[in-house]
Design a protein around this nucleic acid. Structure first.
Lengths: 252, 252
DNA sequence: ACAATTTTTGACGAAAAGTCATATTCTTCA
DNA sequence: TGAAGAATATGACTTTTCGTCAAAAATTGT
């Protein structure tokens, strides 16, 4: 039997299907928790089986390898991220504010689900990627592309509406690539274990917020950040779009 | 017995020590080649032993785990990178040109040794890191810091000499962090397997060159890129500092 | 030349991945 | 309801690889 993740949990399912879906989520939750607390090394199939109180064979009925579990976790995480990005993209404001909202979404996600982001990092390493089926890999690339397209759409609309001067090279990909690499990079730095605070530096996520606005400014994306307060904007976006997430963050 | 990598091969060594050192290099070369051609999954200690025509026990005399080999490869790579960075840092020109030379060094290294850069990526994943001794981890962090300091020195000198206006926040760390995250990020994208050319985009390394100059411009690092041609500068730096590397690249 | 020391070896034990024949549970339909 | 058949769960088993270690081989010093 195959993993059901691709199936939409919203559609009508039989009780049986629902049970299988639930168990699949349980496996993913359990695995993520082991991963978070004890690292990849201690994530074994026997361990997961014991934890969910089923046999190893049953776990293998859901995921045909350990790497597929990792990939399953990533899939689920990316769906969550896509949800937040879509909400950001629908923000009622200038395109510049919309792209900023994407940044906020990313940063909130990083704070709310650090382990999942770390896992997304893991799946990008060849160590894991080389062991998962090609279709799974493509499915992940597909999700990645969905995310990319949300961002790309905003950039293209900004260009079309004249918010970004067209008389410069590398549009829209220069902006896309800049934001993309900076967010990947700061994730990596965030995980790296480098003690930024002890070095008298701001946290990677804050730096990311500042530098990406600089990048957008350098492409003269109107309105440029000299005309508003980027921190005020962040507060506004958090309040208007991500109240739920902010509550969760404040409770913890 | 411990890995000898920390030992300077230049100092006087006995024949015995020299032999051990050589064999250690052989193990690293062999492992890197397996890694490059067949992936981490096929890198096993038995395999390495067979390849170098010694027994497994001997391999373990040099490296006490598979992960230590990976870490050994990384160490060696970082030393190479540091060499190139130092050469870049000593470039006789403006600070802006010197920081640009760092970018060129990084990009040339990525083109010359893609497998090694991929390996440097690997060691950043928790999957590997969690299995290597704490001292090794710190040794790697130390090397990372050496690299960082080379860059940081250039930035600080540029500030001191008035090439970067001081009346702006997040100096020097904003610049350091921006360059840092972008280079990490584009490495990751470079490895990701996303077909940028088919998407009509430039290669990550080119994009990186463009965007990092934009970032430097946004900090008004004089002379800004409107006053010169960044591609011309790259050519000049390649010719003056990295002739050897350029030859290697052109031969292949 | 021989004893002491260092290095090499590969057989071995342990751990975990993944398989599969059998046992169990569930579903269907007379 | 209950019996046949389908679907699912189980855990013993095989395989692979890691890492260890006592014995063998090589090297060194005297």
């Amino acid at each position: 039997m195959q993993a059901l993740l691709t199936q939409n949990p919203g559609t009508q399912m039989t009780r049986k299907q629902r049970e299988l879906f639930e168990r699949e989520q349980l496996i993913l939750d359990t695995a993520l928790e082991i991963l978070r607390q004890e690292g990849l090394h201690n994530l074994t199939m026997d361990r997961v089986a014991a934890e969910i109180e089923y046999s190893k064979g049953t776990v293998y009925n859901h995921f045909c390898s350990k790497e597929e579990i990792i990939s399953g976790i990533s899939c689920r995480s990316m769906h969550k991220l896509i949800d937040m990005f879509k909400r950001a993209s629908n923000y009622q404001g200038s395109h510049r504010e919309r792209i900023a909202a994407i940044g906020v979404a990313h940063s909130l996600y990083a704070q709310l689900h650090p382990a999942e982001l770390q896992n997304l990092q893991l799946i990008k390493s060849t160590a894991i990627r080389e062991k998962i089926a090609v279709e799974k890999q493509q499915q992940l690339l597909q999700l990645e592309q969905t995310i990319t397209n949300i961002v790309l759409d905003i950039i293209n609309q900004a260009i079309k509406d004249g918010d970004i001067p067209e008389d410069q090279p590398h549009l829209p990909d220069g902006i896309l690539f800049g934001l993309w690499s900076m967010s990947y990079g700061s994730n990596l730095l965030n995980i790296s274990g480098i003690p930024f605070d002890r070095l008298g530096m701001k946290q990677p996520l804050d730096m990311m917020w500042i530098n990406s606005h600089r990048l957008l400014d350098s492409y003269q994306w109107q309105p440029v950040s000299e005309t508003f307060d980027i921190y005020e904007l962040r507060t506004k976006i958090c309040a208007e779009l991500f109240t739920e997430e902010m509550n969760k963050l404040n409770i913890e």
